[in-house]
Design a binder for these strands. Structure first.
Length: 631
RNA sequence: GCCGGCGUAGCUCAGGGGUAGAGCAACUGAUUCGUAAUCAGUAGGUCGCGGGUUCAAAUCCCAUCGCCGGCUCCA
């Protein structure tokens, strides 16, 4: 029933001794731009003429069709031994034509792809004009070939169509929006006073209208470069970044922290492949539920896609496991390093949205709805703890299928209380996706845009789809429910949120500062002159944190300025006074200067590192020996 | 992906059909310095890449890549 939504391409290929055409008049869909791309009259000899017509469809499939048409055409050109192609729009191949816009785009794209091949010459006839033509077909067995190209397999096509129907339905259907306060009171968004929760109001507006007002780049982009953390890599696909030592250190710390929380929580770490067989029956079904955003990889004759999450890898393990009700809840965890999503180029935005990213992915099998709810609450707590560790503020959005919400009022109240802040609830009348409940922690950035970080979801679909079972008390096989959780969201996105938080601080006239445990350089030691080298070395040895040493031949004012610009939490100055008094002059981010002994300083720092991971300085300790990555 | 803007030294940017510019950073020297920029000097550029127009192109035109913004999207 959805097949008429699918974009097909009909092509007729003729190997000709000679082919010529001439424009004779405009059709109703003529466009002037066509005559700039293709001449009104031309001829070719010893060529392969490609007549083509695009059928009714959905432009989401253009990529796939272009790819297949190109492949077919090049393959036949190769077989008949010609490198001269004529691309000729020929509406008469179909009675259900696509829109002219899509047709022209297809033509353009096909020509572009063909021209990428070395040695191939392409002659293109204009779209939207009546043309006369003459052709001398060679008449050998391969000289005439007609094909209908559909995007991938027809099953995929119908599933895609189904998905796009679901997405459309979701858009047209009004969601109901409610605010729930930590004490469990529910009010409509209209009746809720957002005065004390401006960010929750921003989240709601963002969700409801999707409009953006910004004309600026997100400030974290400048910061990620200036702080020598992360940078664009022009030599890679867009959305794939390079990480400098300081950024890589922060990322590693964040990863270690998140993984530690999840493993303590009972997640069993696994590692799964990053690429999967496109034709695997279960995976291809799963893929088809979503718009095509995969990296596809050709290995010999086979096609693979790069994972966009760790879900399948874990499903495939769970499918093969022997699990009884005694083992539930059963939690598999992977720090998905990496997940790949080939987002449209215009959707990429610094560290907020990437094509290659790292995310913690926890999948919990539970025996029944009660256990699902119990785990959901525990994992929500864990996500809150995680956000606190990163010192990130966030707003809560909870989405439910209405039936689920109606049957689980008490659970929803507990969830609201657990979040200890007003939360936005969205109710759907029908289930569009695999989940019946989804919790999100959204970060509101310096430009008032929202980005989802932590998420917990109850999946009611995939254990059946992937035939994941457990044996219950009676010895019978059952499909468990499944919880998806990413307690921090993508690590890259956590970095974005941390940097945007600093940008917000700066815009308020405050000083930016990383959480101490994440600061790439935690302390900097500045000697008043090189005479104090020995005293400095003694201090360096006694500090068990990431401390470095500004031994460059520049003035102290300059050194202080440099250290401040790097947001270093503690700046230690050491000169004659300090040596005489056996102490340090300590400058902190608030601008205060204090005289402290090393012992006092370490005692002050210690609580800030509690239960947080530590990694050594990944750079030369002396600034005189440290290269510059950016600037 | 579509529409728009941008791309000049390591960084931030000015310039604009006729010898390629500044500040910062780097390097050399002087200075040995007390809390956000010491002084002087040196070096550094196929003006994103590819075509075209022109006696002459960084500058104008076309195409392409990248970044940013808007739309769309965000499993």
């Amino acid at each position: 029933m959805f097949f008429n939504q699918v974009l097909n391409m009909r092509i007729l290929l003729i190997h000709a001794d000679r082919f010529s055409f001439r424009v004779t008049g405009e059709t109703s869909v003529a466009m002037a731009s066509e005559l700039q791309k293709a001449s009104p009259e031309s001829e070719a000899t010893e060529c392969l003429v490609v007549f083509m017509a695009a059928e009714k469809g959905d432009e989401a499939d253009v990529d796939s069709v272009v790819k297949q048409v190109t492949k077919e055409v090049l393959s036949l050109a190769d077989q008949v031994g010609t490198s001269h192609l004529v691309v000729y729009p020929y509406a008469h191949l179909s009675s259900r034509l696509s829109s002219p816009r899509v047709a022209v785009r297809l033509l353009d794209e096909i020509c572009r792809q063909l021209l990428r091949q070395r040695r191939i010459k392409v002659l293109r006839a204009p779209f939207g004009y009546y043309k006369s033509f003459e052709i001398a077909c060679k008449g050998h067995p391969l000289s005439e070939l007609a094909k209908t190209i559909t995007p991938e397999k027809s099953t995929k096509a119908s599933a895609d169509a189904e998905e796009s129907e679901a997405l459309k339905a979701e858009k047209t259907l009004e969601s109901e929006w409610i605010i729930i306060t930590p004490d469990g009171k529910q009010v409509s968004v209209e009746d809720f006073s957002f005065a004390t929760r401006p960010n929750l109001e921003r989240l709601f507006r963002y969700e409801k209208s999707g409009t953006r007002v910004s004309d600026q780049a997100p400030p974290h982009i400048e910061l990620m470069r200036r702080m020598e953390l992360v940078d664009y890599e022009p030599g890679a696909d867009p959305g794939n970044f390079r990480w400098y030592p300081k950024g890589q250190l922060m990322k590693r710390l964040a990863e270690t922290y998140v993984s530690g929380l999840v493993i303590d929580h009972g997640g069993m770490p696994v590692e799964t492949p990053i690429m999967y067989d496109y034709q695997h029956p279960k995976l291809s079904l799963y893929l088809q539920r979503f718009p095509a955003r995969q990296y596809v990889l050709l290995s010999g004759e086979k096609e693979y896609f790069l994972r966009f999450a760790a879900c399948f890898g874990q499903y495939l393990i769970q499918h093969d496991m022997q699990i009884s009700y005694n083992h539930l809840p059963c939690k598999l965890y992977e720090l998905t390093h990496y997940a790949f999503r080939r987002e449209q180029s215009g959707e990429l935005a610094g560290l907020k949205r990437l094509r290659t990213f790292t995310m913690p992915d926890l999948h919990t099998l539970v025996k029944d709805a009660d256990q699902a709810k119990e785990e959901f609450l525990r994992q929500t707590d864990l996500a809150i703890q995680c956000m606190e560790g990163f010192e990130l503020d966030f707003e809560v959005a909870i989405r439910f299928v209405r039936d689920f919400a109606d049957q689980n009022r008490q659970f929803i109240e507990k969830l609201a209380s657990c979040c200890s802040r007003p939360a936005l609830i969205e109710l759907w009348d029908e289930r569009f996706f695999y989940f019946v409940a989804k919790l999100e922690f959204n970060f509101i950035d310096a430009l008032d845009k929202a980005a989802c970080l932590s998420t917990v979801q109850i999946d009611v679909e995939n254990t059946e789809r992937f035939d994941i079972t457990f044996v219950d008390k009676k010895g019978e096989k059952q499909h468990p429910l499944l919880l998806h959780a990413s307690i921090s969201g993508s690590i890259d996105r956590v970095m974005y949120a941390i940097l945007e938080t600093q940008a917000i601080r700066i815009s308020k006239g405050e000083k930016a500062t990383f959480p101490f445990w994440l600061a790439p350089i935690q302390l900097r030691l500045i000697p008043v002159s090189e005479k104090f080298d020995v005293a400095c070395k003694q201090v360096l040895e006694k500090v068990p944190y990431r401390i470095d040493y500004d031994d460059r031949d520049i003035t102290m004012g300059r050194k202080i300025r440099n250290a401040e610009r790097e947001w270093i939490p503690y700046i230690l100055v050491l000169g004659a006074k300090e040596v005489a008094e056996q102490c340090l002059n300590v400058r902190t981010r608030d601008g205060a200067q204090r005289k402290m002994t090393l012992h006092e300083l370490l005692a002050e720092i210690e609580p800030q590192t509690k239960e947080k991971p530590f990694l050594d300085l990944p750079l030369p300790q002396s600034l005189s020996r440290r290269p510059i990555f950016v600037g």
